[in-house]
Design a protein around this nucleic acid. Sequence first.
RNA 1: GGCCCUAUCGUCUAAUGGCUUAGGACGCUGGGUUCUCAUCCCAGUAAUCCGGGUUCGAAUCCCGGUAGGGUCACCA
Length: 420
Amino acid sequence: MVRVRIAPSPTGFAHVGTAYTALFNYAFAKKNGGQFVLRLEDTDIKRNVEGAEKAIYEGLTWLGLTWDEGADIGGKYGPYKQSERLETYKQYVERLLDSGYAYRDQRAIRFKNPNLDIFWDDKVRGRISFPGNEIKDFVIVKSDGFPTYNFAVVVDDILMKITHVIRGEEHISNTPRQIAIYKALDEKIPTFAHLPTLRNKDRKKLSKRRDPVDLRIFRSEGYLPEALVNFLCLLGWSHPEEKEIFDLKEFVELFSLERVRKAGPIFDMEKLNWINGEYLRKIQKSKLSNQIFAFYGGRYSKKLISKIVPLIQNRMRKLTEFESLAGFMFNRKKPLRVTDNFERHIKAAFDAVSGIKKWERQAIDESLINKVKSEGFKTGDFFMDLRASLSGSRVTPPINDCIYILGKDEVLERLSLSLK
RNA sequence: GGCCCUAUCGUCUAAUGGCUUAGGACGCUGGGUUCUCAUCCCAGUAAUCCGGGUUCGAAUCCCGGUAGGGUCACCA
């Protein structure tokens, strides 16, 4: 039975790196019919942040990464919060103390390094070895009575029957310490797999200060969770058929640690934007309308959004672009003069539009193009001025479609306003 | 600095010793479609870090350099 876990500490918000690790753990568990456990490592009381726990749950849930056991939903190996397992750790400390693998130092307790060379066969990197003297006599219980990370992890993984430890590369140097504890305890050592670390453009590991790592940022920027997940799948892993767009379900079916690369990939926003655009394009129009409506908290009329969506669906890469693309449909903007013939163009357009009897999409086309011909305008210039007059921008969805949706009165009003 | 990990187009990656004039995708450039922008279609640009080996044959295996990253807490 395969059992994996992620073990974030509630010290802030939900980190994209946590999501990445969770994604691969989730896939490995599901692929192998195992369980995915979410454990909270909150043994540093000073660093625990109110609300961080909730942010982790929300972030992972948003991405569709669900867990089988965890602090919020329980499970047969709980509790899943380290601060609630203090008694458990004490028993293991006693074992180590009794067998001479640990000793008291001041008010703390240290592990006594047995000086054994350590190696393991990492599922993504192959054999990794450390000389025994690299491990110092590290603290396993702090003077406040709380266990340290390296100790608590081992005890929990043993008790929670974790079979595969799939985590970030930054934990490689912790692994020999943890293996030393397993050996001292005479417990079975799990399989380790160290994933590459996600990096920024400077090739450094993603930093809180200057990189977008808070999952909530992605949500508020208008990324779809499916798109973010798809993008994350592509970092360090590749589809066997070299497909770029696929869903979580397909990822799970095809996932294997053997296909995970060792080099740390760079988090490339450009590619994320492209993927997000792909998802935005293939989503159902009604669903997209609902998403936009919800995204803007009901600020824009749903009815109008639904009419506009067909015009902007393949122009959007992020939900946030809705306003720059179609904001003028809701609010008048300052008109923009583009060509020297602006007044002539707008007057002619006014004539053409006022002359339309039945407000139909096709009538607008005909009326406008006839005007262009009879006046001998340059088609591109005329429509550009028309667009700039109505929207205040040189870039909009097809302007005749916009005119149709805006309605005759509003169009005439805007045209005359821009002549002042 | 010690220890550890890594190294294919700018970026994500494929190729697991021969089928490779190193493939795909993002980006970028050019073209087609078009009232603008986008979508879509077509084309182009661009890489095996360097040096030694092993082998009939190396992006792929080995060694050495170099470069990048990670880690060296009573943080996790």
